[in-house]
Design a protein around this nucleic acid. Structure first.
Length: 458
DNA sequence: CTTCTGTTAGT
DNA sequence: CTAACAGAA
């Protein structure tokens, strides 16, 4: 037994319960938990604005939770391998525990840290260790359904580890930077005023959300596609930042009955996205199917203006605008509406899916490299999972089909007074308020333009 | 045991 | 169209 503490390197695993890296470190003596704010390692994928808002509150919550069990969170900035090496020298630590991550930049960073220090990576953020589910011939799955069938054979996941009642502290704490000086919260202007009503980042907030969801998990399959109804779990940001583990969620809801299997499938998609970025690390920027590399996406001033209209929720399609405004106001968008807005950008506006991926990356509190890339490429039809570009979603059909009226009234104030079914297409119903923009392009014309473009690509 | 080939399915 | 599997070669 030596006095040398062990470093606990935290990233997207900001919890104390079911935290295998923490559990392993506790067995070795004193622990220095550290979060490194590192924008250099992810480069283009440095956290976006909404994620930074979440991170700020999550780190504050984690520090309080750590202090309640005799520890604290050390904050440092810089390139993670250099910062960890420096902290190891300062504290005399010779070992680092972390939970393994699969974003390509984290895989590189783990290799870089392992060159300088004794780094031990643990699995624990996914239902099964990504890469461990293989096809009959030993390869990695490319399609969701067979992957999910194979993953279910390995379920349930191991029972979650308990939260430690105390964490051994080092004799001397190294210095920590101050969270308030990191500038993670928006100031000029503060666009986050609408975030707090929906979210309380941190482990306690995650479990509060999970406990609330347990009560309606059995009807998830019937209500999840209705944006006017609170049918989804809203666990995505908590899962992304690791404030609750997938195994904890599984064990909490698996016995709920009803259509809870539909929800468990969504956890499966989360694991699936990791196997995709393991196989194709640049999936966030490169088409899974190179046949669509030649698709003539619109560029230039007109396309830029259309992109702006989409971002601001001023396309003249109520369901699209409601979704984009919910995203801007709260850092989150209902999943059905994510599909509709994404499809609209790609096919109606014929703008490169990477522009949408980037906007979601900046605006979502649950922005996740793997899930975001998989979902955008699925919608674009460029992904390794089959979905045809020529299948074009009709937003004005989706909107009544999923009863989005009240959702539109909530998020598009110009339309709040429109009654009945006219809400889905006030232009067509002849009751469009002057303050609400006309359609940016007609559905028929957009469809024909998209089909012509994909014909040209082949 | 490996490779080929036909069948089924793809939220 | 391709992935994945099962059964054949």
């Amino acid at each position: 037994m030596t006095d040398a503490p062990t470093l606990l390197w935290l990233r997207r695993d900001l919890r104390l319960a079911d935290q295998p890296a923490l559990a392993a470190a506790i067995g070795e003596g004193a622990i220095v938990p550290v979060y490194v704010l590192d924008d250099e390692t992810p480069k283009h994928y440095a956290m976006g604005g909404a994620s930074r808002w979440w991170l700020h509150h999550s780190l504050a919550s984690l520090d309080a939770d750590l202090r309640a069990v005799g520890s604290r969170l050390i904050l440092r900035r810089g390139k993670c391998d250099a910062v960890l090496a420096e902290l190891a020298t300062e504290t005399g630590a010779n070992r680092v525990h972390c939970i393994r991550h699969f974003e390509p930049w984290w895989r590189n960073a783990e290799r870089a840290v392992a060159k300088r220090l004794d780094l031990i990576c643990h699995d624990g953020n996914y239902l099964a260790p990504p890469g461990s589910i293989t096809t009959g011939s030993g390869g990695q799955y490319k399609i969701f359904t067979p992957f999910w069938r194979a993953l279910q054979q390995q379920m349930p996941p191991p029972a979650p580890l308990p939260k430690p009642s105390s964490i051994p502290a080092p004799a001397h704490w190294p210095r920590s930077e101050r969270l308030n000086e990191w500038g993670l919260l928006p100031t000029k202007p503060d666009w986050s005023t609408g975030f707090g009503a929906d979210w309380s980042p941190g482990e306690a907030g995650a479990h509060h959300k999970l406990n609330g969801f347990k009560r309606h998990a059995a009807t998830y399959g019937e209500t999840r596609n209705l944006p006017s109804v609170e049918g989804s779990s809203r666990l995505s940001p908590y899962l992304h930042f690791g404030e609750v583990s997938a195994a904890q969620v599984w064990h909490a809801v698996a016995g709920a009955g009803g259509s809870v299997d539909t929800f468990l499938g969504e956890l499966g998609w989360r694991d699936y996205a990791q196997t995709v970025i393991l196989q194709l690390p640049d999936y966030g920027s490169r088409n899974g199917r190179p046949t669509l590399d030649t698709l003539p996406w619109r560029t230039g001033p007109d396309a830029a203006a259309d992109l702006k209209a989409w971002q601001l929720g001023r396309t003249g399609y109520p369901i699209v605008d409601a979704g984009m405004r919910q995203l801007w106001a709260t850092g989150w968008m209902h999943n059905r509406v994510r599909m509709i807005t994404a499809s609209f950008l790609i096919k109606h506006l014929l703008i490169d899916w990477r522009e949408g991926e980037r906007w979601f990356w900046d605006c979502l509190v649950d922005a996740d490299y793997g899930s975001n890339a998989v979902n955008w490429q699925w919608t674009a039809g460029t992904g390794i999972d089959a979905n045809m570009f020529v299948r074009i979603m009709a937003p004005l059909v989706q909107s009544p089909k999923f009863e989005a009226g009240d959702y539109i009234r909530q998020w598009v104030p110009e339309l709040a007074q429109v009654r009945g079914e006219a809400i889905h297409d006030p232009d067509e119903a002849g009751c469009r308020p002057a303050a609400y923009p006309p359609k940016i392009i007609g559905h028929r014309a957009a469809r024909e333009r998209a089909l012509a473009a994909v014909k040209q690509a082949h």
